[in-house]
Simulated scan of single mutants.
Amino acid sequence: MADLTLNNQIKNITYPFYLKGNDFKKLSLKALPIKNWIDNHGQELTEFIYRHLNHYTLNGYQDIHLKDIPSAISKIDFVFREPLELIKDFKDELNRIRVNIINLEKILQNNKIEIKNILIQVQYLKQQQFIQTKKQEQESRVEYANNLTSDMGLDMDQIEDE
């Protein structure tokens, strides 16, 4: 097997970050027509909704003939069409970004957990290495102490006398 050398330089990393800064700018631009529509027609739509709900609540549309109801329904479709189309365009883009943000969150959480687990494993291994080193040091001291002889220095009788 050939000798492998570790190179501390990272040359190229790609990661599945599907969001770009431009996405948020595009989303803001898609939201702008909704804001403008609300600014220009919001009060009118509010009054339209309020008027029809009150009309139904107060008299149940008793004054409208049966033949006029289809045209009233068509008018309601027409009144709500523009804001709903603006919202749909925005919502589609928002959902795409939402999905990408959720995926990004999952990726980040998974990587965070994986890196923490790796560090915990490294900590455990280093603790085991430290314990093993200390055991070896202790064993070597005990072995050294067991191999002491009287000619290596003071003997036990001299130590007791002092």
Rank of each mutant, 00 (worst) to 15 (best):
L45R: 02
V142L: 13
L27K: 08
H52Q: 08
K35W: 02
D63C: 05
Q138F: 13
W37E: 04
T5R: 04
E85N: 07
L66S: 12
K20Q: 14
Y15L: 14
N110G: 11
V99I: 09
T57L: 14
W37H: 09
N100F: 10
Q132F: 11
N110F: 12
L119S: 15
N95T: 10
L94C: 11
D161G: 05
K106A: 06
N147E: 00
N110Y: 11
K106T: 03
E143C: 07
F80E: 11
L94V: 09
I87A: 03
N147R: 07
K20N: 09
E44F: 09
E143S: 13
D39G: 02
I34Y: 04
R51D: 12
D161E: 06
E44I: 10
K25I: 15
D23I: 00
T14L: 08
L19T: 05
F80G: 11
E160M: 04
D92W: 11
D77S: 11
K91D: 10
R81H: 14
L32E: 03
I10A: 13
D151F: 12
R98S: 14
P70K: 12
Q123W: 05
Q9E: 13
I102Q: 02
Y50W: 03
W37N: 05
I38R: 05
K26I: 15
I102C: 02
L148C: 10
L94T: 12
K112A: 01
L58R: 12
Q128T: 05
K106G: 02
S140M: 15
I120L: 13
I107C: 03
D68I: 01
K35G: 05
Q158P: 00
S140G: 01
F78A: 15
D63F: 03
L6K: 13
R96Q: 04
H65P: 03
I118Q: 13
K112I: 01
N12H: 15
L86A: 02
N54P: 00
T46P: 00
L58P: 04
N110W: 06
E47Y: 12
T149A: 04
D39K: 12
L148T: 08
N147G: 04
I49D: 03
N146G: 13
A72L: 02
K91S: 05
Q136L: 15
Y50D: 05
T57G: 14
R96Y: 08
I113S: 12
V122T: 08
D39P: 01
A2F: 08
E93T: 04
Y144D: 02
E160S: 06
G42E: 03
A2I: 03
S74M: 13
I76C: 04
I113W: 01
E82W: 00
Q121Y: 09
F130K: 13
E47R: 14
D161M: 11
I159M: 07
H52W: 07
E105C: 14
G153V: 15
G21A: 13
N100P: 04
H41V: 00
D151S: 15
F130L: 13
K67R: 12
R96L: 15
E44H: 06
Q62G: 01
D23L: 00
P33R: 06
I102D: 03
F78C: 12
Y15H: 05
I13F: 08
Q9I: 14
M152G: 15
E114F: 11
Q136V: 15
L58E: 09
H55R: 02
K116H: 09
L108Q: 03
I69S: 07
V142H: 06
N12C: 07
L86H: 02
R98I: 06
I64E: 03
K91L: 11
F90G: 01
D39A: 09
Y15P: 04
S140A: 10
V122A: 12
